Amino acid sequence: MDDRVTGIEVRYFAAAADAAGRDKETIELPGGADLAALRAVLIDRHGFDMERILSVAAFLVEPGDAVGSAALTRDLTVEAGPRVDVLPPFAGG
């Protein structure tokens, strides 16, 4: 991580939106923060329901550069990009 602070747009879907009480918000984190740091802030802000959802959710991370493509991951060591979508498991078929 570095000394700069960056705003990460977090978009919530399905049960994650219910737990957050909103569809999106901006979270301020130090530059280079990983998904584990983002997860900790989200749990601190939104409580047990969010913790339960994040334990099974995947993250769609937009890259910090314009060249890469978004990556779907559950790896909390991945650097949080400028936009992160929280995707709980979806039912259906």
Score class of each variant (00 low, 15 high):
residue 92 G to C: 11
residue 23 D to S: 09
residue 19 A to L: 11
residue 31 G to N: 00
residue 48 F to H: 10
residue 4 R to I: 04
residue 38 L to I: 06
residue 3 D to S: 03
residue 67 V to L: 12
residue 58 A to W: 09
residue 60 L to F: 14
residue 63 P to D: 06
residue 50 M to Y: 02
residue 93 G to V: 05
residue 40 A to C: 09
residue 61 V to F: 03
residue 71 A to Y: 15
residue 11 R to G: 13
residue 59 F to G: 07
residue 27 I to N: 03
residue 66 A to Q: 02
residue 64 G to P: 02
residue 40 A to G: 10
residue 54 L to F: 03
residue 26 T to I: 06
residue 81 G to F: 13
residue 52 R to F: 11
residue 17 A to V: 10
residue 55 S to Q: 10
residue 10 V to M: 11
residue 65 D to S: 02
residue 44 D to L: 09
residue 41 V to W: 00
residue 50 M to Q: 01
residue 52 R to E: 10
residue 9 E to G: 04
residue 30 P to T: 14
residue 93 G to L: 06
residue 44 D to G: 14
residue 67 V to N: 06
residue 10 V to S: 07
residue 6 T to F: 05
residue 45 R to W: 06
residue 28 E to K: 07
residue 27 I to V: 03
residue 20 A to H: 06
residue 78 V to P: 08
residue 9 E to T: 14
residue 72 L to Y: 10
residue 84 V to A: 11
residue 56 V to P: 04
residue 90 F to C: 04
residue 29 L to K: 00
residue 77 T to K: 08
residue 16 A to C: 04
residue 17 A to E: 13
residue 49 D to I: 02
residue 60 L to E: 15
residue 35 L to M: 09
residue 77 T to C: 12
residue 6 T to P: 01
residue 36 A to C: 09
residue 74 R to A: 12
residue 47 G to E: 11
residue 13 F to Q: 10
residue 93 G to F: 03
residue 48 F to K: 08
residue 87 L to P: 11
residue 24 K to R: 14
residue 80 A to C: 05
residue 20 A to D: 07
residue 88 P to C: 07
residue 51 E to R: 08
residue 65 D to Y: 01
residue 22 R to H: 09
residue 43 I to M: 05
residue 3 D to A: 02
residue 77 T to V: 10
residue 64 G to M: 01
residue 12 Y to M: 10
residue 30 P to F: 02
residue 5 V to A: 01
residue 92 G to T: 07
residue 41 V to Q: 03
residue 75 D to H: 14
residue 45 R to F: 01
residue 37 A to L: 05
residue 85 D to Y: 06
residue 71 A to W: 11
residue 19 A to N: 06
residue 60 L to M: 05
residue 24 K to I: 02
residue 86 V to H: 13
residue 13 F to W: 05
residue 46 H to F: 12
residue 12 Y to K: 04
residue 32 G to W: 10
residue 3 D to I: 02
residue 75 D to G: 08
residue 45 R to V: 04
residue 13 F to A: 10
residue 20 A to S: 14
residue 65 D to G: 06
residue 57 A to K: 01
residue 55 S to C: 14
residue 81 G to E: 15
residue 21 G to S: 05
residue 86 V to P: 06
residue 49 D to W: 00
residue 3 D to Q: 02
residue 55 S to Y: 12
residue 36 A to P: 15
residue 38 L to G: 13
residue 31 G to I: 00
residue 16 A to N: 09
residue 1 M to P: 00
